[in-house]
Amino acid sequence: MDKKSIAVLKELFKAGELNEALIADLRQDERKGVQNLIKSYENQILKEKALEDKFTKMCRFEQKGYADGHQYIAGMDEAGRGPLAGPVVAAAVILPSNFKLLGLDDSKQLNKATREKFFFIIKDQAISYGISIIDSQQIDQINIFEATKLAMRSAIDQLNPKPDHILIDAVNLNGLPCTHEAITKGDTKSVSIAAASVLAKVTRDKLMQEMHHEYPMYDFASNMGYGTKNHMTALEVNGASPYHRRSFAPVKKVVY
């Protein structure tokens, strides 16, 4: 076999064009750069297998639903229950049964670039999705838990076709139009809930970035409304913005 240069082999690796047959030949090549490349290839294969295994495991609630005769299984999650400012956002999504997105996980476990990439993939491939936003004024009127449930119901209402089973991250909702189950830490256990968590978080993060441009002193683009040290200092100095939740104790103390 004619030896390819290490530079060429690296390009083949980057392009995903190395295969087991070529790797088998390269094992006879004693060049250190080639052996390092083989290790990188093997590590990549192990990572891909781990992602495949994780994704398969995260499909078990959906697969059980299909086995029980359900056709449109929705996942639902929210973002923004804990912050001192900004809306709470809920998302519901029905994915096709053959949906596959390796690396999908709880949105908080993904970096910003991956979340935003997945956001568009999920919206593009979903059978249906709904996103609901409840602002801080309404949160103050009905409390954060009721606002979260309201957002979730609104997101469900946007789905077309309607779901015949709903997987929800940790929240029990009564009066839903179909069977449903609340799953503790569901955004790490169900692909549908994980997809919903991505839709909710990316939507909310974009809203907080817009609020940051209006009120940069609170640094919403970095803290997303959570009570960081810098955020609390800005609250004490500037008082509350129109986007702050005045019913939350830390905000109550500084409202003027």
Rank of each mutant, 00 (worst) to 15 (best):
K4Y: 09
L9R: 05
K10P: 00
K10W: 00
E11I: 02
L12P: 06
L12C: 09
F13E: 01
N19P: 03
L22Q: 13
I23M: 06
A24I: 00
A24V: 04
L26S: 08
V34L: 08
K39F: 15
K39G: 14
Y41C: 03
Q44E: 14
L46E: 14
L46W: 03
K47L: 15
E62K: 01
A67H: 04
Q71I: 13
P83Y: 12
L84R: 09
P96T: 06
G103M: 02
D105C: 06
D106V: 08
S107K: 11
S107G: 12
Q109K: 15
L110Y: 02
L110Q: 03
T114W: 00
R115K: 05
F118P: 01
F119T: 07
D124Q: 12
S132Q: 12
D135H: 12
Q137F: 03
Q138T: 05
D140S: 03
I142N: 10
N143E: 03
I144D: 04
F145E: 07
A147I: 06
L150V: 08
Q158C: 07
Q158E: 13
P161M: 02
L167K: 08
I168T: 06
V171N: 08
V171T: 07
L173Q: 00
L176H: 08
C178Q: 07
I183K: 08
V191F: 11
S192Y: 09
V198F: 15
L199K: 10
D205I: 04
M211T: 13
H213L: 12
H213N: 13
E214C: 12
M217G: 08
F220A: 11
K229R: 12
N230M: 08
H244S: 10
R245V: 04
K252W: 00
